[in-house]
Write a protein that binds this DNA or RNA. Structure first.
Lengths: 351, 351
DNA sequence: CCCGCGTAGTAATTCGAATTATCAGCGGCG
DNA sequence: CGCCGCTGATAATTCGAATTACTACGCGGG
């Protein structure tokens, strides 16, 4: 009686047009248009227009139909307030492609939060089902929820590579492996022979990918991998220098900032004495709240994650999934930004 | 067959537990708990746990008549790429409040465009009706579409004051009248006696509000209104100075930039020789694509539009509208930013 | 004359959950 | 014995749309 009273149903339209509800449905869907007299169809369409009828997505979906609605589930807020906005490029790509494909977007904001995070299954219900399929994004993820989604055979695509022990899941990710390998190759071509990787202990997919790309590149050049896991930049830099490293790959620009500062303290110049490459864009969610980009920001050598394209491709993969529920995985190439923190090594160390 | 084949229903649970579907529903909802034997309830709950049953939100909402979805319709793209992002604060407020009120958000991106703009009525039907109600935002608007929405008695709230000849419509706007009056008062208190308004010819609601606020303030001080409509900043400044104006209210920061440049050319200092106040935030959609804010940006004296709050209040008004379809109008106060472009007048001109 | 067949619909069913009406069984009392 | 009232559960209905099964009607050919 709240919103439902104003809502016109097919049955009401049918009564006004003097036909049965089934006819209204047929007129709407154009199915078996041969079976309906042009006069009847016109009469029904007239009433449809007068009443401003629109389908009830719940009824249609209950029956197994589709709504031309794609869900967008984020574990964090969709519209963040920070200037360095991690999600926006993804969402822009998603919106553009959804518009191109003729889908509306449903943002799942209704659920309560637990531990400050949103959940797909809240109070025993899967809210995603309102949409025909859903795009998931966010750094966090809940393996249990993912597993249940897979079991329900609900069509969804993750933005960013995700693996689930339950079975293959669809995703559109960035090819960190290839990008890291490429970075290693470029440094090698510049003459570097001791190329290190400063990684983090947290073992999520992107980190693992970067490491495997690094290790593959090192193996190709028959060099032992030089992986450092130290969190303190000063100690890390000491370790790196002790190993004779001339070029360092760093996971985050925050860590790179730390290394750079310590290097300056030691009287080292970047890139003359040490080349540094950041493996990816700045991820603001891992950094403290920096609202204003410092004007002296370093022009890091790095690679860019194709966020915009990832969003668009995620929509395309999801739409494909609706027709053919065969899981699909897609990795998009990162573009390498030359930057100002790489150069030829000053000392030719070929231990 | 695509989605949902893996789902467990209440009926299946009931069969496994050897009871009827109604009992399962009762156990789940705890209703009439007195009517169910503890043993039966335990048995059902056991099966519920084993099968991993989750409520299908569709069936539940189908009965309820409401689907807990609020539409968000924008005439332009929701996720713009520019840094100066006009919509984001609104959307952030909308998202937060929707989450608090337990609604999902449906972004209408599917509609085809005409003249590069989205439309509410496509193919004769109102797609907004999919949601329980809808929030509209965007600088453009289509009076005809608005009129039809009113006639359909569809619950909607406009962000920004909008009037329709058809009847009262709900909106949440910023109180430009009061803010402009307040600006005028402050300048008066500083000693200014010739306070001008540089307006634009386009007559939308915000412009009219600013003008009426200005005129009310001038009337209160028994001063003739000094309204300028010249678009060329050089000519406008000449007119302004010819009238002996010592403080100028300007509609947009773009225009203010032009005036400032011309004033400098004439050897005038701001604010010493001329105080300037911008009536509102910078509206990036009226400016050329400026991706990087110039570091020499002027600290304009101006007032800020409470975008975030407007979004949140729009959701609250809309939710209220669902219960009681009585149109509601709400104006939120702007906050005045002192800035660096106002000062006491150098010449005491009291013509 | 009646069967067959096409036409233009209508009646009935389905989806999943919630709710209402109903029913079976049992104890107690007149 | 029969009936009331209570308990604990089940059958039936509802929501809106889509689809299948069915029917009423008309026309033509055998």
């Amino acid at each position: 009686m709240t919103a439902g009273s104003g809502r016109v149903t097919q049955a009401q339209v049918a009564r006004l047009a003097g036909v049965s509800q089934a006819v209204v449905s047929m007129v709407l869907n154009g199915s078996d248009s041969l079976r309906i007299t042009p006069e009847t169809r016109d009469r029904v369409q007239q009433v449809l227009r007068e009443t401003g009828y629109t389908v009830d997505i719940m009824g249609r979906r209950l029956r197994g139909g589709t709504n031309q609605i794609l869900g967008v589930f984020t574990y964090e807020s969709v519209f963040p307030s920070g200037v360095a906005d991690f999600y926006r490029p993804f969402l822009l790509g998603i919106e553009e492609e959804a518009e191109a494909q003729g889908f509306d977007l449903l943002l799942f904001t209704s659920g309560g939060r637990r531990d400050g995070r949103r959940r797909i299954y809240e109070a025993g219900t899967n809210r995603l089902r309102i949409a025909d399929g859903s795009i998931l994004l966010g750094r966090h993820n809940d393996p249990q929820e993912l597993a249940q989604l897979v079991e329900e055979q609900f069509p969804f695509v993750f933005v960013g590579r995700r693996e689930s022990p339950t079975g293959p899941i669809s995703y559109v990710g960035a090819d960190y492996v290839a990008a890291t390998r490429e970075v290693h190759e470029r440094l090698w071509d510049l003459g570097h022979r001791r190329i290190g990787l400063l990684s983090v202990t947290e073992e999520n997919e992107p980190t693992l990918d970067r490491r495997s790309g690094y290790e593959a590149a090192a193996r190709k050049r028959r060099r032992p991998p030089l992986v450092f896991l130290e969190e303190d930049p000063a100690i890390a830099l000491r370790q790196v220098l002790d190993e004779g490293v001339t070029a360092l790959l760093v996971e985050s620009s925050a860590m790179a900032d730390g290394i750079l500062a310590c290097a300056h303290d030691l009287g080292l110049k970047v890139p003359e004495d040490l080349s540094i490459v950041v493996l990816g864009d700045a991820d603001p969610s891992q950094q403290p709240q920096v609202h204003a980009v410092p004007s002296t920001a370093t022009d890091w050598s790095m690679f860019r994650i194709p966020r915009h394209e990832m969003g668009g491709h995620a929509v395309r993969v999801l739409v494909g999934l609706l027709k053919n529920p065969e899981p699909r995985q897609l990795l998009l190439p990162c573009t390498i930004h030359e930057g100002a923190t790489t150069a030829k090594p000053s000392t030719t160390d070929s231990r």
